[in-house]
Nucleic acid binder design. Structure first.
Lengths: 244, 244
DNA sequence: TCTTTCTTAATGGTAAGACCATTCAAAATT
DNA sequence: AATTTTGAATGGTCTTACCATTAAGAAAGA
């Protein structure tokens, strides 16, 4: 980069602040500061509009924005209002799904990221999993054995990964792996699901044993082999269907 | 309900459909069906309101909802309107920020996840970084040396991580590390930023050298040491300010 | 006293109409 | 030909009004 460019322009992009955006910012910052927290109730729309010195319609657009962002929930009637919602990763998952659906991310990228993320998770879980966590994992593996419906099995898998992520005592990993898994799940439907199922239970039981022995390398390897089986299956079905 | 209820309940949760939700659904379905696609322009608000037979305020709430979902973008003036837009990862970052603020994810969790994620990124970049990537990284490191403002430096850091993530040829990592960095950035303000800055440039240059030699372990170690310096700094400032 | 029904106020949801600020093309002016 | 002015289209905001839903309290009935 041989250029001279005395100083870079460094202009801030002008951006006419709309009223509802300013309102959202204020509420979000109060959330970040802790002034507002889950369960709190915002004043009524008419009162809030007066407080912000905007019209009710402008305020409502702000509330609508916060609602679709999963921050508040609106209920009608007296004793109704806008309540700060508990955090749910659904919005993140949906945002990632939208991103993927617009073709910005390939299946290969998803599977690779999932593999790497679960490698971290398994190794951390190996260090930190409590006996309660392990027992929960065993219960899920046991339940998976009995479920037959495709949806029920997916539910089991989701729980499996959730508990596994929880064992790391770090919620961030749970978000990551949940997002990736739920996106990949849309490709999982297809034949040969039965044959995968057989090896699945054994693989999970082996993984639990490795976790109990705190053998991180063995556990990570077991997870990797399992995921690669799944991903081969997914890739094959994608080709067969000429999917997205 | 005195009856026996022969079969299992299986009731769908009642959910009063609000007007703007119905509008969003129609537009989303037209997107899925391909009737609407990126770049298309929706009719003007007043016309759309007539077409949907709703008031303009109800329609605007629907548009607002679609806008914060990243589906449309609104511009003013004649030749303005609502345009279907391609999704950008900003939404994901925003969703993760909301989640952290709502969900009491601790600073420790954030830093740990960032460390682990960047470990993956560095190792992958070691394998896959092209000469162009490396040159870009060098240019950024060089520019960082000359910037003095806090915001300008953060801009450099953001670019640094973005290019680094791009070198992995996997966009998912970029999303992850962007989200974590932007959340952590809110804590970075504070004293002692100058002393950190000195070591920063050297650390980055060393990292680039390791990447060039394809020495993954050395590169990962360099990154880890750097991040741990940063995180110690952040933690200290948090305590000093009694922050969130 | 207890139960049921009715009233009522609070709140979100919707409607209708008006005005402002911005934008850009076309007309008017130099 | 270049510049300025005009004007219409469009999103953003404000105002006012009314409707639907909800829950608490009052009233009525047992």
């Amino acid at each position: 980069m041989p250029t001279t460019t005395a100083a870079k322009p460094n202009f801030a992009p002008i951006k006419t602040q709309r009223a509802f955006e300013a309102i959202c910012e204020q509420i979000r910052s109060q959330l970040a500061a802790g002034t507002l927290k889950t369960g709190d109730k915002l004043p009524a729309e008419r009162d809030l509009a007066i407080e912000f010195q905007v019209s009710r319609s402008a305020l409502r657009e702000a509330l609508r924005s916060l609602e679709v962002s999963g921050i508040i929930r609106n209920t009608k009637g007296v004793k109704g209002g806008s309540f700060i919602q508990a955090a749910e990763p659904d919005r993140i998952v949906q945002a990632m799904q939208d991103y993927v659906h617009l073709g910005k991310v390939s299946l290969e990228e998803l599977t690779e990221a999932r593999l790497a993320t679960l490698d971290i998770i398994v190794r951390l879980a190996c260090e930190r999993a409590s006996e309660t966590d392990l027992a929960e994992l065993e219960a899920i593996a046991e339940r998976t054995k009995q479920e037959t419906g495709v949806e029920a099995r997916y539910e089991c898998a989701a729980q499996w990964y959730e508990v596994l992520a929880r064992a790391t005592k770090n919620r961030i990993y749970g978000i990551f792996v949940n997002s990736l898994s739920s996106i990949l799940h849309q490709f999982v439907q297809g034949p040969d699901y039965e044959t995968l199922q057989e090896t699945l239970i054994d693989s999970r039981l082996r993984l639990i044993r490795h976790l109990r022995k705190r053998d991180a390398d063995a556990a990570a390897l077991e997870m990797r082999k399992h995921l690669e089986r799944i991903h081969r299956h997914v890739r094959k079905n994608i080709k067969a269907r000429g999917g997205a």
